[in-house]
């Protein structure tokens, strides 16, 4: 009974937040510029939650997350650009973007998920580069994709409700998964793959499951992005973008979903805020300050902001937070 009322309270809180933000946007308290930043931060959140599942919960190191974001964006963009921007095509495009990213993740994941830790990271990094090269040359496949010049004229159908509820959906999906028996299996793979195997857990299956779902979320985020900005360029999906998502997941604290969400939103706003407060002559310092903040945060809090703890998850719908023993699953620390 208490469980149900807590869930209702959580749902009410989310709806309340949505109404509040929508009101602030409608009344112009949040201007067009910051509204756009908010949309972007929510889109990044969806993608980061996907990587959080892959790396934070299942322990599979991926340096190519932006590739799947790109696959989703281009797939979705291609569909609405050829079929039209009506709502049913838009929904189909979002689903197809997520599906395409998930399918590619499945195909590439089957062979490469056998690799471990840094080797897996390098293989996914390589895959990210291959996707970038293919996107750069995509105009040879279909002129609509635009190749290195970028893809123009995608219908601008993504609005605030779509990104907000998309993010809520992504968070709920990962949260529920992590608390299910599937999630427990993923966690056990992260903590100790051999032990998990011995306990009868089909490790390949759960690694693939986490990877496909996480990349599917990146694809969904890509589809939303494509229809928010109506312009895609391969540069937006390169290696540096993969690093951005990794930064978010690690800074938030591995194995902390709330940490991922807070950091994703925080970092996007931090970058824009720095753009706003720096005088014109010092705008070049933006990257420098951002880098220093990163280094200081990481050196001060190596376990991430949340350090594997969940924040307000109990209020947001019950369930024990998923604890992580930092450093135990990672064999070998940064030298003993």
């Amino acid at each position: 009974m208490a469980q149900t009322s807590k869930r209702l309270a959580a749902a009410a809180a989310v709806v309340g937040l949505y109404i509040l933000l929508e009101l602030l946007r409608r009344t112009g308290v949040i201007g067009a510029y910051w509204a756009q930043v908010m949309d972007l931060s929510l889109i990044i959140t969806i993608s980061a939650v996907g990587l959080s599942l892959i790396y934070g919960f299942a322990g599979q190191f991926s340096l190519g997350h932006a590739a799947f974001y790109g696959i989703g964006a281009y797939t979705a963009g291609l569909i609405t650009k050829t079929l039209g921007g009506e709502i049913h095509w838009y929904v189909l495009a979002l689903a197809a973007g997520a599906g395409a990213a998930g399918l590619v993740a499945f195909l590439i994941g089957l062979p490469i998920l056998r690799l471990r830790s840094d080797y897996l990271g390098i293989a996914t990094l390589g895959f990210g580069f291959i996707v970038k090269v293919l996107l750069d040359n995509s105009d040879k496949l279909s002129p609509t994709l635009g190749g290195a010049r970028g893809m123009l004229g995608i219908p601008q159908t993504t609005t605030f409700p779509w990104v907000f509820w998309g993010a809520v959906l992504a968070i709920l999906l990962v949260r529920n998964l992590v608390h299910s028996s599937y999630g427990r299996a993923c966690l056990s793979v992260r903590e100790d793959e051999i032990a998990a195997d011995i306990m009868g857990i089909h490790t390949t299956r759960f690694k693939t499951l986490a990877f496909v779902l996480g990349c599917g979320l990146a694809g969904l985020a890509g589809g939303l992005y494509a229809h928010r900005y109506s312009y895609l360029h391969p540069q937006s999906f390169d290696f540096l973008k993969s690093l951005d998502v990794l930064l978010i997941v690690v800074l938030g604290g591995l194995g902390s979903l709330t940490g991922t969400v807070v950091t994703a939103i925080g970092l996007v706003f931090l970058q824009e805020w720095l753009r706003g407060i720096l005088p014109q002559d010092y705008l070049d310092w933006r990257g420098v300050i951002y880098a220093i903040i990163l280094i200081v945060l990481m050196v001060r809090r190596p376990q991430g902001l949340m350090g594997g703890r969940e924040w307000s998850l109990r209020i947001l719908g019950g369930g024990e937070p998923v604890q992580i023993v930092t450093g135990k699953g990672e064999k070998g620390r940064a030298s003993a």
């Binding site: 690690v250 800074l251 420098v288 990163l294 990481m298 190596p302 620390r333 940064a334 030298s335």
Partner: peptide, 30 residues
């Protein structure tokens, strides 16, 4: 400092990314 704290390896990796960004952007200053 990270080694001294016995931080997980990923923290050192992220710091390395931070250092990389710092060198790139600092070098780009006029």
């Amino acid at each position: 400092p990270l080694r001294a704290k016995g931080a997980p390896r990923i923290a050192a990796l992220i710091t390395a990314i931070g250092v990389s960004l710092f060198i790139e952007y600092f070098s780009s200053l006029k």
